[in-house]
Design a binder for these strands. Structure first.
Lengths: 335, 335
DNA sequence: TTGAAAGCGCTAACAT
DNA sequence: ATGTTAGCGCTTTCAA
């Protein structure tokens, strides 16, 4: 309102009718005559009327703001997802407030408190890797705050969730490598406490089983810090490469792990894919542009944002909804 | 307000005092006795009071929202800048609404209208590459809407702006390459209509002049689409490499151009820096991680976000401020 | 079909 | 130092 804008009252005065009629006309209420409605609409446009959100909020007890808690926003996956969320939110007249937990449970909690104090009408959440229980969320949900979990979702059944189909993606990745003729396929993945890690491992197992390949424990390596720590990637990479029978192919199960694997293999003078094949999960555009080229699994980031936001909007508008669980397909991209 | 929360009235009733006293106490008004203040504060905490933003907004005619219009958010520079903006905004009790112009003047205009209709209290703007005039912004500024331009700023003097010191950055980059022994240094840059392009070119010129190197027009090549189009990068690269005396070093003057240059040189089997040296502007973390390693100029994204937001906050709170022009140093990173 | 009036939660004159 | 009151712009009974 920094800029003074027209109000209902001014339209009413101009047209010599009451504020309430103007309000009704603007909200397309059935009780208003077509003629009056038209008059009001014309006048509103002419005076460049825009509703006052604060007044609306105060009146109907909704802030028209949704909150989103994600790990960080400085990666392509979340950035694209956010674009989807904002598209939907803006269409429904909602603003989006973004908070970053930076993989910390404590920050996640303070984000939550911040957003609750802002009295957001709904919440979009991707869990920090430190988070185990979600009582801090479900408490608020039970008090009536609609929320949708996305990407890194909890196991709970009594929540809404929107995920990538990580199982299928990993299954396809593994199958692709098998079809390429590889029999010893490794997976370097993140902390197994995170939902997406478990799902990606499960897909990998299933694909091996379905193609009658043995599962060898030594070929699954974990980066407990999500691969952000180059040293831990280096360590597990060395373990793999120094094995009696080193893997012929590696699946890097996260964006950061993928990048670090490329760097490491380059440093070690391994040619990809001649010396060892690499396939990685990644939503970073750069990966398509830099060399060496590897097949990647790209998550449907934008679509997940749209789906999560739409589910949240429905949940806000209709109140208690049967809990929904959506799983969107990822894309295997081979150049 | 999805969750019902305590109001001033309830605290007042509980303590048997008036709403206004409670309000004053909460706002630390001088006229309230220390005793009452304490009482109110305790009671507020006990009842878990949080102020109602909508009511506050309605009362003081401010939305407590600032808008930001940037190109896209799916790149590291803007993502980090946003983190800085949000840090400052949240500290001051403001929400941030993000809009993306995707390099289109029309979208920029509709973003502006959208934000104006939301009655934001202030605006952070980085111009689209299509934008030439800024009347659409200054009109609103004159009507009293505070705004700060950042990164891609207009030439106008009657605005607030926060930039990277692109001149200095480019000067340092060029000087670095000269010190490495190169005498034929090219710059591949974006559309010269954009402020940052001009500044980066100017720094390049000055460095050549200061080191008594001739300026050769053929060594400056423009990507009118900002290097997003790989073909245009390929074309100018070919022009450079096929010159009578090809450059010994190239400065890539934007994130996207840098990446595409690496890819192209790799494709053409040029070794970096043995066959040709490359130095690029980039804020993409991946560039530090992938090979080959090149020196980069990194813009102070987070700091620019903080600076722009703080300037905007001052501008909102103090009203008309003498126009400020801040220029933050970039970092030349050599591995 | 329309109008009058109350009230959402808060702040700020204006009393006292 | 504290209370009373009005009003921000809107929606929504209730009445006509």
């Amino acid at each position: 309102m920094s800029i003074k804008s027209t109000t209902l009252k001014e339209i009413a005065k101009q047209l010599n009718i009451s504020k309430s009629t103007v309000s009704r006309a603007l909200n397309d209420d059935y009780s208003v005559s077509a003629k009056t409605k038209q008059l009001v609409l014309d006048c509103a446009r002419q005076l460049n009327y825009t509703p006052n959100f604060a007044a609306k909020s105060l009146k109907n007890g909704k802030s028209n703001v949704i909150g989103i808690i994600a790990n960080t926003i400085d990666n392509n996956f979340i950035a694209k997802l956010l674009s989807g969320v904002e598209l939907v939110a803006y269409q429904h007249g909602y603003n989006v407030v973004i908070c970053q937990n930076r993989e910390s449970y404590d920050l996640e909690l303070s984000n939550l408190n911040y957003l609750a104090a802002k009295s957001v009408d709904g919440l979009l959440v991707s869990l920090s890797s430190e988070t185990t229980g979600i009582a801090h969320f479900t408490d608020l949900q039970q008090k009536g705050l609609p929320m949708v979990f996305f990407d890194r979702v909890p196991d709970n059944a009594d929540i809404h969730k929107v995920e990538a189909n990580n199982f299928k993606a990993s299954y396809e990745a593994t199958t692709y490598l098998i079809k390429q003729g590889h029999t010893r396929i490794a997976q370097i993945t993140s902390n197994p406490s995170v939902s997406i890690t478990k799902q990606r491992l499960a897909g990998y197992h299933q694909a091996l089983r379905d193609h009658d390949l043995p599962y060898d424990e030594q070929y699954v390596q974990y980066c407990l810090h999500g691969g952000f720590d180059m040293d831990e990637v280096e360590q597990v990479m060395n373990t793999l490469l120094k094995a009696d029978k080193p893997p012929q192919a590696i699946i890097a199960a996260s964006d950061r792990i993928t990048t670090n694997c490329i760097t490491l293999l380059y440093k070690l003078n391994y040619q990809i894919p001649q010396d060892i094949a690499l396939l990685g999960f990644s939503n970073n555009d750069l990966i398509n542009v830099l060399s060496p080229q590897i097949p990647i699994i790209e998550l449907p980031a934008f679509e997940m944002g749209v789906a999560a936001a739409e589910l949240l909007m429905r949940s806000i508008k209709k109140g208690a909804l049967p809990f929904e669980f959506q799983s969107l397909d990822a894309r295997l991209i081979v150049k």
